[in-house]
């Protein structure tokens, strides 16, 4: 259990956090909402890929594709049904609605799949030897897939037309609308991308941790949210950095202090960050006006 090993473990869970944090961050950047239901989308994704593979006996790639589509549709429908009617009302109502949706999904899953955890068979078998260390293929795949997705997302946001529209809406939604941007479809697109990333994060998470339960999304979601806040919520490079930092901090705590305290350390980091620099590492200041 050397330091390198812990760091690689941290990178692996960190890149999953980063993928989920991206969803939180993009949604927050555009509609200023902490989408509490995002964690539950991971859980739905996990159940979906499990169902496709072990019940419908589909091969891995179609199963993952179906999962991504299911999650994207779910994310967009949540936005359309629950968040859109409240877009103009108080932020607290929107936040409470998000909590409500999250609990609804969690409890529906509990009713449908029962509270017993399901086992998921790893998609990536075998391991790679680097020096004297054995690193599982799942770890390598997780880090690799995340890096590719993050690069793709950066390109999407910075180089394409829709990315420009997303940036414009997050800057000022009203002004963007006046410039002829369809704000509703941009918001839906953002939710779809965020949920699709969450679906892939779910598959990667299941490959390494193999247990699927209705409550798996809430802790994972909360930690990813902490990562988004740490990096500066609303910022895409921030979410990536934050995710990796949280992952490494958690893995080092597990390795060297106590595995039970790792959650407390993560939330401790959140509190320290919020107190010292509430906007996070890459966050922009949110000016208050009367």
């Amino acid at each position: 259990m050397t330091l390198i090993y812990q760091l690689i473990n941290g990178l692996q869970i960190g890149s999953i956090y980063a993928l989920v944090a991206l969803g939180y961050s993009m949604v927050y950047g555009i509609v200023r909402l902490i989408n509490f239901a995002h964690g539950e989308i991971i859980m739905v994704g996990a159940y979906c890929v499990w169902f496709c593979m072990s019940r419908l006996a589909l091969p891995a790639l179609p199963a993952v594709a179906i999962t991504v589509i299911v999650c994207a549709v779910l994310g967009v429908s949540i936005e359309r049904i629950a968040y859109k009617p409240l877009r103009k009302s108080a932020r607290i109502s929107l936040l409470i609605t998000a909590i409500g949706v999250s609990f609804l999904l969690q409890n529906l899953a509990q009713l449908i799949f029962t509270a017993n955890p399901r086992m998921f068979t790893n998609l990536f078998t075998g391991s790679i030897a680097i020096g004297t260390q054995e690193i599982s293929a799942a770890t390598v795949a997780t880090i690799g897939v995340s890096v590719v997705l993050m690069i793709a997302l950066s390109v999407l946001v910075n180089k394409t037309r829709i990315g420009k529209a997303m940036r414009a809406v997050s800057e000022d939604a009203d002004a963007a609308q006046l410039m002829g941007i369809n704000v509703n479809s941009v918001i839906s697109f953002t939710f779809a991308i965020g949920s699709a990333l969450a679906a892939i994060a779910a598959v990667l998470y299941c490959c390494s941790y193999s247990q699927i339960s209705p409550t798996m999304g809430s802790m994972l979601g909360l930690k990813a949210f902490v990562a988004a806040v740490l990096g500066g919520i609303g910022s895409i490079p921030g979410a990536m950095t934050g995710g990796l930092c949280i992952g490494i901090a958690e893995s080092l705590t597990k390795g060297y202090i106590s595995s039970q305290l790792s959650d407390a350390v993560v939330f401790g980091i959140l509190i320290v960050v919020l107190l010292i620099k509430p906007t996070g590492i890459f966050g922009r200041g949110d000016h208050q006006k009367v």
Binding site: A82, P85, L94, I96, T97, G100, V101, F103
Partner: peptide, 10 residues
């Protein structure tokens, strides 16, 4: 509970 929360809020 959760349905109530969402419906009341909307």
């Amino acid at each position: 509970y959760s349905l109530l929360l969402v419906i009341v809020m909307i």
